[in-house]
Design a protein around this nucleic acid. Structure first.
Lengths: 149, 149
DNA sequence: CGCAATTGAGTTGTGCGCAATTGAATTGCT
DNA sequence: AGCAATTCAATTGCGCACAACTCAATTGCG
């Protein structure tokens, strides 16, 4: 039994819609949880990378997060204004700007430590389910990326 | 064997990041495919709902898409400027604005018919995998929504 | 060496997504 | 009927995402 051709355009059959809805639902949960830290969700992602890798150029940051300078430049400016990161031109390559967490930025890590647990609790999924879903999504992303050169 | 506490903040363990990345990867694919139709991805979602339901108020549209008037009002204005939809105040409830596809908007449905197939092809997933993933994501969204009242 | 091509940040412009607010219309309650 | 509470759309303001562009620094090639 196959799906009638007319139904292919039904909203509830579009995987991208479910994906988009889930992504925005996550946004809502993060907004609540991150409000205490004074971070938006994309800012939180940037801090995650900085906590993990320490100082690194905007370019590398963008590679980790799949974001370009058009998104990162203003975002980093806001993080700098908030006192969480510092930016300075690299000495031996004046094109590159290196970003590193300030003391305050590093201190924030302690307060962020409980965020993943609170998020996991909000999903109602157990760890195996989350890992499995992550794996599928990463495979999907890779396929979609290779389909758009 | 458990994950060290410090690793809980690792980017590659955050389900939300995989979700966000997949959502944006889809955005890239849709951008390419929808360019011919002159639609953005959110505009395409609106047209899907209108093709399926015909005329309906902004409120209902928002319920289908989980979007509020702050997002829909300007988006619908652009669709109206493009000649794809018409808006008019409801006769028996002057607060409500009813949206319906124009002839041109309805005609676009034919050209959009092949979009889902092209998207499905780009994912590299078979139909069962897509259905399964959709179901998981919808369950996730429901859980996240109920966690933020 | 000298100059073209490339690289890295930043800026501009457009379009979401969402909170907060406004203002008009409607409903509900007494 | 009269008035408060609610509902609906629109607007404002902010932040992200991305394309297109600028500009300076660097690389590479002849």
């Amino acid at each position: 039994m196959t799906t009638p051709a007319a139904d292919w355009l039904r909203l509830d059959q579009q995987i991208c819609f479910s994906l988009n809805a889930a992504s925005r639902a996550f946004g809502g949960v993060y907004r609540v949880i991150l409000k205490d830290l004074g971070l938006t969700y994309p800012q939180y992602l940037v801090m995650l990378v900085l906590w993990e890798h320490g100082e690194l150029p905007v370019k590398r940051l963008g590679e980790h997060l799949r974001l370009d300078s058009g998104t990162l430049s203003p975002l980093l400016k806001r993080l700098e204004a908030a006192g969480l990161v510092q930016r300075e031109r690299s000495a031996h390559d004046e094109r590159s700007v290196r970003v590193r967490p300030t003391g305050e930025g590093l201190a924030l890590r302690e307060r962020a430590a409980e965020v993943p647990r609170r998020i996991a609790a909000a999903t109602g999924f157990d760890l195996d389910e989350i890992q499995d879903l992550r794996a599928r999504l990463d495979r999907l992303t890779a396929a979609l990326d290779s389909a758009t050169p």
